[in-house]
Design a protein around this nucleic acid. Structure first.
Length: 697
RNA sequence: GCGCCCGUAGCUCAGCUGGAUAGAGCGACUGGCUACGAACCAGUAGGUCGGGAGUUCGACUCUCUCCGGGCGCACCA
């Protein structure tokens, strides 16, 4: 993308080296625009800097930041500041008076047409629209490379004992989109998917194979082979088995259940030990299920770089290395009194305990039987992520994507291998219910003196995806009266209650395929299927991204299968419309933008009639601003909203102005340039959201 | 009991570091395909921003309190 934009800039600057263009080129170079062209951000910074120097000169005020906002209506200009209100008290003058004084001192600023006072004391700034439009049309180059970190994003992390469901889809889509945003901003990002292959959930399905189905290791091998030949999904098989075994633990008499639970923990222990037949079954199953998860996510264009597994964290003695550091720094201490007697514990964040008191609320890290809790293992893992553990995984290739290899942790690896870990900033896409343990890990890092790392440890939390009661009934589940009265019902793998990811994707593709078949009668099977897939994935990804992270999604097929209104397909449709204009017009966006660069757009940008089109140009120019906001707040939803609003304004423009029949050739170029700019922006933003832009739909 | 999240139009949700008349989608009603494809557009109706107090020139936004809903607070992960 940056390459083609640079090309645009180059073309813009060199295609017509007439006198007019030359002056623009000089201006661009003087402003440093060739290195960083983003109209909105640049003009904001320029205005802010100028205001700051004016305030310093006139009132001897040194202000850190000056509030700038987008006025509610273009009649108030393109940028505004309410700074006069803030200064009213300290300067002992009316805001309006201050605003007038500031405007009188502002003079002229490059890129701005003028300033004025409005309302009770707002200072409104008007852009030099023609100049701004030329810059917007030229596009932008890459971001400045200052302050870029090596980041690591962990997402998906599904227990490899059952099929992925819609909750996992939200996690993976949020995580993958955020990876794309960080990369778009120029950061180096490693993508990790943590695999808990030795936990109680995997142990449970192993118990199911061994004791519910009476299968041996050889039987499990046969089953895997058999499913493969029949083209059935092992993760679906485990989904049902996991639900059955979870019930089995509670179905028997009290003595039976106690015995079954014992079996469960004995199995778990065997998995942790390794080198036995039970562990081998677990390895077979968890690896097969993991492969299925990667296939499911690949349907959504989601890829990973590295799969660290808990088995290696255990076997490669990560904990032992972490334990030493934790003891040395005093983060962990041995409890000799109270309910945690005999355990190694750490103080919880925010806890205040008087000297000599026993901290009953401490977090246990090493149990009295010597085993390590989940938080303990996670501390060791996160020390590794930051390169602070002094140990590394061994690596093996595991899953080959069209453009790169995904590696998995191993006890004895291959050489050569890429290196993971040693990140400067980490993002953990983990649901909000795990914020306590996440806080514990951060607290441990901080306690060990790794404060910088603790500050760059971001729990990218999000709320769950639940089912509406109506949806649960539709799926044929038994729903209690109590649950029927709730706004939503939590998905539960243990109960086998939920919507499987592949089922939803299949359903979406079937629905989009029906729509495509109705419209694309001239296209063949493969083309139709490709388009249907692009639209289905666009619909799904947008659906998961349109909600802000801390809003619970109450899932319903009616909403998820909708292709109208605020949806991915709506935005994709705007792209297709824009493309059709160029196709039917026998030209290209590139050619139009090159021609546009040689024109004066001023006549089409002024006056009441131009307001809507100019608003569309301004919206198109906001991409980098929105990207930065998304990254600083860890909130991809803002970009999803931006894409929708841009598409919406474009559709309005599309109806109001019929471009190809426009008789004034100069105006036609302007209208085509408008479509070219919006098309370019939509494609870039959709790509950042992981949504493809179909050629037709 | 302690902590976190949520409460905005009939439904589902936006609302940027406090700023100008509170927005969108869906649903309802009305209108628009001889146009670059109607998976679209335009219009109408619909809101005490859960209640109350406070801070402020200004509060959907910040503080406190109450009400209602959800989730955490294991020697489970």
């Amino acid at each position: 993308m940056p390459a083609s934009q640079q090309e645009l800039v180059r073309r813009f600057l060199s295609v017509k080296p007439g006198r007019g263009r030359h002056s623009v080129r000089i201006a661009l170079e003087n402003q440093g625009f060739l290195r960083h062209i983003d109209v909105y951000l640049e003009l904001q910074k320029r205005l802010e800097g100028h205001l700051r120097s004016v305030l310093a000169a006139k009132y001897d005020l040194q202000l850190e930041t000056i509030p700038l906002e987008t006025p509610p209506d273009l009649k108030f200009g393109e940028l505004a500041t309410p700074i006069a209100f803030e200064l009213a008290r300290s300067l002992r003058k009316a805001p309006k008076v201050i605003a007038h004084e500031i405007v009188a001192t502002l003079g002229t600023v490059e890129g701005f047409a003028g300033f004025e006072v409005a309302g009770a004391g707002y200072i409104n700034a008007r852009l030099d629209r023609a100049a701004a439009a030329r810059l917007i049309a030229a596009g932008e180059t890459q971001h400045s490379s200052k302050g870029l970190l090596h980041a690591m994003v962990e997402h998906t992390s599904i227990n490899p004992n059952k099929a992925a469901h819609i909750g996992h889809l939200r996690n993976a889509i949020l995580g993958d989109t955020f990876v794309r945003l960080l990369r778009a901003a120029g950061q180096k990002v490693d993508v990790q998917n943590y695999i808990d292959n030795t936990g109680v959930q995997v142990a449970d399905v192993v118990v199911g194979f061994l004791h519910l189905e009476g299968k041996s290791l050889a039987d499990v091998r046969l089953l895997l082979e058999d499913l493969k030949q029949k083209g059935e999904r092992i993760d679906y098989y485990c989904w049902d088995l996991y639900a059955k075994i979870s019930q089995w633990y509670e179905q028997g008499s009290e003595e039976e259940n106690a015995a079954r639970k014992k079996l469960r923990y004995a199995t778990l222990h065997e998995l942790e030990q390794g080198n036995n037949e039970t562990a081998e079954i677990a390895e077979l199953i968890s690896t097969a299920v993991l492969r299925r998860h990667l296939e499911t996510m690949l349907r959504l264009d989601i890829e990973y770089d590295f799969l660290p597994r808990e088995s290696e964290i255990l076997r490669l003695k990560f904990w032992e290395a972490a334990f030493e550091q934790l003891k040395e720094t005093g983060v962990l201490y041995y409890e000799t009194e109270g309910k945690n007697k005999g355990c190694w514990v750490m103080t919880r964040p925010g806890a205040e305990i008087a000297d000599g008191e026993t901290n009953e609320y401490a977090k246990v890290i090493v149990r009295s039987n010597g085993t390590i809790t989940y938080v303990g293992k996670d501390i060791a893992y996160h020390l590794w992520k930051f390169g602070l553990l002094g140990k590394d995984f061994c690596y093996k290739p595991f899953f080959t994507y069209p453009n790169h290899e995904c590696w998995i942790s191993a006890e004895h690896g291959d050489e050569p291998h890429p290196h993971f870990g040693g990140a400067q900033a980490i993002y953990n896409v983990i649901d909000a219910r795990q914020s306590d343990p996440q806080a514990n890990v951060i607290q441990a890092l901080r306690g060990m003196g790794y404060t910088e790392q603790a500050d760059r440890y971001i729990h990218f939390s999000y709320e769950m995806v639940a089912l509406t009661p109506r949806c649960a009934v539709e799926l044929g589940y038994d729903v209690s009266d109590e649950d029927l009265a709730r706004p939503y019902i939590e998905v539960s793998g243990r109960k086998g209650f939920g919507v499987k990811a592949d089922d939803l994707i299949d359903k979406l593709i079937a629905a989009t395929r029906a729509e495509v078949d109705a419209r694309q009668t001239g296209r063949d099977e493969t083309e139709r299927q490709k388009i249907a897939g692009q639209i289905a994935i666009g619909a799904l990804r947008y659906f998961m991204l349109k909600f802000t992270r801390n809003s619970v999604i109450a899932f319903d097929f009616k909403d998820a299968l909708s292709f109208e209104g605020e949806t991915g397909p709506y935005i994709q449709y705007a792209v297709v419309r824009a493309r059709n204009i160029f196709r039917k017009g026998g030209t290209t966006p590139e050619a139009v933008l090159a021609e546009f660069a040689a024109t004066d757009p001023a006549p089409w940008l002024e006056g009441e009639a131009a307001q809507d089109i100019w608003a569309l140009w301004l919206r198109a120019a906001r991409r980098t601003l929105v990207l930065e906001q998304c990254i600083s707040t860890s909130e991809p939803a803002f970009l999803a909203k931006h894409a929708f609003q841009l598409a919406q304004e474009f559709n309005n423009f599309y109806h109001r102005h019929h471009i190809l029949t426009e008789e004034d050739p100069a105006r036609k170029v302007f209208l085509l340039a408008t479509a070219a700019v919006v098309l370019r922006e939509l494609v870039v933003v959709l790509n950042w959201l992981g949504i493809e832009s179909p050629e037709a739909m």
